[in-house]
Simulated assay, not measured.
Amino acid sequence: MTNGFELHQGTLPLLVSMPHPGTQLTPAIAAALTPRALRLEDTDWHIPRLYQPIRALGASVLSANYSRYVVDLNRPADDKPLYSTATTGLFPATFFDGEPLFNAGQEPDEAMKAAILQQLWQPYHQALMQELTRLRDTFGYALLWDAHSIKSVVPRLFDGKLPDLNFGTADGASCAPDLSAALLARCEAFPHYTRVLNGRFKGGYITRHYGDPQQHIHAVQLEVAQCCYMDEEQFTWSEEKSERFRELLIALINTALEWGERHLRR
């Protein structure tokens, strides 16, 4: 397997984690996927491009190269479910809508899963922890922003249309409550976009595992409805939508950084 991620080390106390924008497949997985699955429709499309202005501000960025159909980096290594409702696991076997990803009888075996866990999952999480530690040692604290997107309508996962902005803080455990309050307050200047805190998406493994306010690491997951910045059916980038949405995204990141400067700077 080639390198499973790209890490850019920035100059701010902020790490943006992107576990699901990857589109690479291992040869064995590629040969076993159904024709529909080869379109990789459940990818967090264009997230590195969407967050490019945040990287330019000085954020560290950790971005996965491999598809979530190979391994879901936002699930625990023991694959314990994160939600009681419908979801997908560490080694997804179905689309978000429940249809099979793999041709019958061609799902990854245990040996393949163990190799993927060792070669892709573990290095990503090692890099994530090392970068958070570097930032905390440098600044006295670290902010972790877990960046995701999803189609705005997925009936198996949630009813109706998803809010545009879905903030997750593990029901308040992964960051200080006044940080999430500040982010929601900042959204009020952008009434075109709907938002919710700890709704259907409360934060996955990364947010829940690494967010540790007592150790000066504050984590927030943002799940963005893809209609905000792209064509959800064709998976194509929209310059008009993304330009408008980036104004809000930059405002949110600056709000988090300003909060950290006021409350956590040593």
Score class of each variant (00 low, 15 high):
residue 103 N to F: 15
residue 105 G to S: 14
residue 105 G to E: 14
residue 106 Q to G: 14
residue 106 Q to K: 13
residue 107 E to K: 13
residue 112 M to I: 15
residue 114 A to N: 14
residue 115 A to E: 10
residue 116 I to C: 12
residue 123 P to Y: 15
residue 123 P to S: 12
residue 127 A to D: 08
residue 128 L to F: 10
residue 129 M to W: 15
residue 132 L to G: 00
residue 133 T to I: 14
residue 134 R to M: 09
residue 138 T to F: 10
residue 138 T to S: 15
residue 141 Y to I: 04
residue 145 W to A: 00
residue 146 D to C: 11
residue 146 D to L: 07
residue 152 S to M: 03
residue 157 L to G: 00
residue 160 G to R: 07
residue 162 L to G: 00
residue 162 L to F: 00
residue 165 L to Y: 13
residue 165 L to Q: 09
residue 166 N to I: 01
residue 167 F to E: 00
residue 169 T to C: 00
residue 169 T to I: 07
residue 170 A to F: 02
residue 170 A to N: 01
residue 175 C to N: 02
residue 179 L to K: 02
residue 179 L to C: 08
residue 179 L to T: 01
residue 180 S to H: 06
residue 180 S to E: 06
residue 182 A to H: 04
residue 182 A to F: 07
residue 182 A to V: 13
residue 183 L to V: 01
residue 185 A to L: 14
residue 187 C to H: 11
residue 188 E to H: 12
residue 188 E to R: 10
residue 189 A to K: 12
residue 189 A to T: 11
residue 194 T to C: 09
residue 195 R to V: 09
residue 196 V to I: 09
residue 199 G to N: 10
residue 200 R to G: 09
residue 203 G to C: 07
residue 204 G to P: 03
residue 207 T to Q: 05
residue 209 H to F: 06
residue 211 G to Y: 01
residue 212 D to V: 08
residue 213 P to C: 03
residue 213 P to H: 02
residue 215 Q to E: 06
residue 216 H to P: 01
residue 216 H to C: 04
residue 218 H to E: 02
residue 219 A to Y: 02
residue 221 Q to G: 06
residue 222 L to C: 10
residue 222 L to P: 01
residue 224 V to W: 00
residue 224 V to I: 04
residue 225 A to P: 10
residue 227 C to F: 08
residue 228 C to V: 01
residue 229 Y to M: 08
residue 229 Y to C: 03
residue 229 Y to D: 02
residue 230 M to D: 01
residue 231 D to V: 05
residue 231 D to L: 11
residue 231 D to E: 09
residue 233 E to I: 13
residue 233 E to N: 14
residue 235 F to D: 14
residue 237 W to K: 11
residue 238 S to C: 15
residue 239 E to G: 07
